[in-house]
């Protein structure tokens, strides 16, 4: 079954063979769930949202015209579902001084940060990520964990390619600032 392309399964489902959707579900559920989990940071919410994403995918399957890959199309739905859910919850995100971001000495930061032990690095990264706006977190996750290209990220987020590049650069700098200037809570830990 794995040999068939996504488009083949989409055509099968649209022709009335709903069971073929199980193959698409099997292929993408883990990736979509992991992305949503990293954004919402709650197991139950992530599972519910992943299920909602696949329900949306099934309902709007006829709208998939193959202009992008099926995975990009699914990620687009997952991105918008997760972002709107996170906006509903109105988390507070850290505002950082623009000058601090602009003057962030990235190279030195990387070296300094690299000196910390593994689990501490991960904890600090997770904390820093949670303080970014949902769309910023999503762009970073698409680029670094899902290894999506700028073109694909642009398609998923609905931004232009140049906008994605600029935003990625800024978010990266913001992340560096947050990693090297830990919050008071982090310092107390």
């Amino acid at each position: 079954m794995e040999l068939y392309s996504d488009t083949y399964y989409v055509k099968c489902v649209l022709a009335g063979d709903t069971t073929c959707f199980a193959c698409l579900l099997d292929r993408y559920s883990r990736q979509v769930h992991l992305l949503i989990f990293r954004l919402v940071r709650n197991r139950e919410d992530a599972e519910e949202l992943t299920q909602d994403v696949f329900m949306k995918v099934f309902r709007s399957l006829s709208a998939f015209k193959g202009e992008s890959s099926f995975s990009t199309w699914i990620y687009r739905i997952a991105y918008h579902t997760a972002i709107s859910e996170m906006r509903k919850k109105k988390h507070e995100f850290l505002a950082i001084d623009e000058a601090l971001i602009e003057n962030a000495p990235e190279e030195m930061t990387a070296e300094m940060f690299g000196a910390n032990d593994d689990s501490e690095q991960i904890t600090r990264l997770e904390t820093a990520l949670s303080r970014l706006a949902p769309d910023e977190q999503a762009i970073l996750l698409f680029f670094y964990t899902e290894e999506k290209s700028i073109e694909e990220i642009a398609h998923i987020t609905g931004l232009s390619q140049s906008n994605v590049k600029v935003r990625l650069h800024r978010i990266r700098k913001k992340l560096f600032v947050m990693l090297t200037h830990p919050t008071k809570e982090q310092e107390n830990e």
Partner: peptide, 26 residues
């Protein structure tokens, strides 16, 4: 460096019954 760091982020496994439950809804 960032890619390496992101790759170390902990994975979260999906509930074993997830696909079955979702297919029932589908």
């Amino acid at each position: 460096w960032l890619k390496l760091l992101f790759s170390r982020l902990p994975e979260e496994d999906l509930n074993a019954s997830f696909c079955n439950d979702t297919m029932k809804r589908i």
